[in-house]
């Protein structure tokens, strides 16, 4: 169906409206981060007095720099572990018949439904007793647990899409199950794995509940939690500018990751595997 100029115009306007609604808060944040503290509340969308002071300020604070390192480290480790275990579980769910399969799927769903906040109190006590409080593993473990259901569900959907005959072909070509998984399934499921990895990474990266409850020092505190501890230059000053700058800084890696892998996510890699 070809669209008429009127339809094109209509869709164009609708797209612009959606873009504006989505982009304004982000742009506002960016604008705030460049504003001089004295002009913070001037109500202008554009900074009247540009400054990099906010950025310089946050990178001078060990509170923020440590938190950034913690955030990156914890999120990457949790993502790698979550996706690796998730891929294995998802492959089993998609391909094998085994006792307790329904139980596994159901409990994964249950975890996804479970409100994390309900776990914070018992975990706080438990972590303190077993020495995980305020450590990297102390955050990596809950992140992995809560991202596994997501990983299992998305990845098993991707694995199911891969024709089973490809594995059978690999088996007949002399591949062991592990070789078949590594050289046939994983490359084909790459878009799914990247998608899942990004989703899991975003979850770990932006979590606040666990980060604020299970940490107490720069040892393991991540950026979302650290931002809450920002203070102004004096007790009469709001740390709004610094918060905005920190928010912009932690958005950048996510934006880069999504842009980098966007093409892989969209690409239909399985084209041509079987007659289509």
């Amino acid at each position: 169906m070809r669209s008429t100029p009127r339809q094109k115009l209509g869709w164009g306007i609708a797209n612009v409206v959606v873009l504006v609604i989505a982009a304004v808060p982000v742009l506002w944040l960016v604008s705030l981060s460049f504003k001089d503290p004295s002009t913070l509340t001037d109500g202008s969308f554009y900074p009247k007095k540009w400054t990099f002071e906010n950025y310089r300020g946050i990178f001078d604070q060990p509170l923020f720099t440590h938190a950034l390192v913690n955030s990156i480290g914890i999120a990457i480790i949790a993502t790698v572990l979550g996706v690796t275990f998730g891929a294995m579980a998802a492959y089993a769910v998609a391909r094998l018949e085994f006792g307790g399969k329904q139980l596994l799927i159901a409990s994964a769903l249950l975890i996804a439904m479970f409100p994390p906040i309900a776990l914070v109190n018992p975990m706080f006590n438990l972590w303190r007793q077993i020495g995980l409080f305020d450590t990297w593993p102390g955050l990596i473990i809950p992140y992995m647990t809560f991202s596994l259901p997501l990983a299992i569900y998305t990845l098993s959907a991707f694995f199911r899409e891969i024709p089973w005959d490809l594995e059978r072909a690999a088996a007949l070509d002399g591949a062991t199950p592990l070789q078949a998984f590594r050289s046939v399934i994983v490359p084909l499921a790459a878009p799914g794995i990247f998608t899942t990895a990004i989703l899991v990474f975003l979850y770990c990266w932006s979590d606040f509940v666990f980060a604020i409850s299970l940490t107490s020092t720069n040892n393991a505190r991540t950026v979302p939690a650290a931002i809450a501890f920002f203070t102004g230059a004096s007790q009469f000053q709001q740390p709004t500018g610094s918060i905005a700058a920190a928010a912009v800084v932690i958005t950048i890696p996510v934006a880069i990751v999504v842009l980098l892998f966007q093409r892989r996510i969209v690409a239909g890699l399985t084209a041509g595997a079987v007659k289509g």
């Binding site: 005959d165 490809l166 690999a170 007949l172 070509d173 595997a273 007659k275």
Partner: peptide
């Protein structure tokens, strides 16, 4: 015996070619 130890070649109805490999790599895989 596993398929690997039986040393048998099979052509599938839907061909089951490895889509991420070139024709050469497909044939060289085994």
């Amino acid at each position: 015996k596993t398929p690997r130890d039986r040393d048998i070649g099979m052509v599938f109805q839907n061909y089951a070619l490895y889509p991420h490999m070139s024709v050469r790599e497909n044939m060289a895989f085994s």
